[in-house]
């Protein structure tokens, strides 16, 4: 019962309040807030920044999720083998995960700083001139995606590693005896057996791609010209920089619907194809 009360107080009530808020206009000194129906949503559809942010978010998700999952599997495969200094390597991969996103962003800020940053210094040795990675609308989103992959892959690796260690080694031995190559074994046996993990990781990755915007505060503030702006950060800006709380509420509803649809899709579509032992 206390749990239900907490849930209602801190989850359900704010959600409903947001829905209601999104149907009202912004209060000004001369005009109080009033019911405007779907006007906020109408305005949203006409807002080019909204569409830009949405597209950015889609690219961000598409760019980071498959890459970080693939990288996580590769790293887990590597660490799962008996190599010397295994626990050290494991720790090294895991480090980005234990760091808070803000700290990670600070590290990468140092990498990306034009001319004196690590990347430009290394590029400089090979004769490339400096580049303002975070200042160029063409490179800013990829730059942030690289950082996100770096941060997330280690986290996902831990789940894959745990799942791999649950696969009995006889399965690999049996397929070796049958003449299966490593790749065949991975494709036909290991990867299917990792499906539950993949589903779990995928849900997390999708949610994170909409939820994680801490780094934008440090790195770009969504700029330049909204080139790296993501939905949640845009909501934050609208609500707390422009004080358009009612418009922000409408945006929030969109975010909630997107997340809800994603979660349902994954659980109902993917679930059918997942093998659970």
């Amino acid at each position: 019962m206390p749990a239900a009360i907490l849930l209602i107080a801190f989850t359900h009530y704010p959600t409903v309040a947001t829905v209601i808020d999104s149907l009202f206009s912004k209060a000004t000194a001369i005009r109080p807030s009033r019911f405007v129906g779907l006007l906020n949503y109408q305005r949203m559809l006409d807002d080019p920044i909204f569409w830009k942010v949405l597209a950015n978010n889609a690219w961000f998700a598409l760019g980071t999720i498959p890459t970080s999952i693939a990288l996580a599997i590769v790293m887990a495969l590597f660490v799962n083998r008996a190599i010397p200094g295994r626990s050290l390597v494991r720790m090294a991969y895991f480090t980005p995960t234990v760091l808070p996103m803000i700290a990670v962003a600070n590290i990468w800020l140092f990498f990306y700083t034009p001319d004196i940053g690590l990347i430009d210094q290394i590029a400089g040795w090979f004769g490339f001139s400096g580049h303002n990675w975070l200042g160029d609308p063409n490179t800013v989103l990829p730059a942030i995606m690289v950082m996100t992959v770096w941060k997330e892959a280690g986290f996902f690796m831990i789940f894959y590693l745990a799942a791999m260690q649950n696969i009995p080694p006889e399965l690999e031995e049996a397929s070796r005896l049958e003449g299966a190559s490593r790749w065949y074994y991975f494709r036909r046996v290991m990867f299917p057996l990792l499906m539950p993990t993949t589903l779990f990781v995928l849900v997390n990755a999708v949610l994170n791609s909409f939820k994680l915007v801490d780094h934008l505060f440090v790195l770009t503030k969504g700029g330049p010209d909204n080139a790296s702006n993501l939905l949640l950060y845009y909501i934050f800006e609208t609500a707390f920089s422009y004080f358009e709380t009612h418009f922000a509420a409408a945006l929030t509803m969109v975010l909630l619907v997107i997340l809800g649809v994603m979660a349902l899709l994954q659980f109902f579509v993917l679930d059918k194809r997942v093998h659970y032992r």
Partner: peptide, 29 residues
């Protein structure tokens, strides 16, 4: 290489592939 020795093996744990049905398990090799 194990695959080239021409031996088959039955493991104590059977080592069946849990995601494949009986037919696919038998035909794997």
């Amino acid at each position: 290489d194990p695959a080239k020795r021409g031996v088959s093996m039955v493991f104590q744990s059977y080592a069946l592939f849990p995601h494949l049905n009986v037919r696919e398990n038998i035909l794997f090799g």
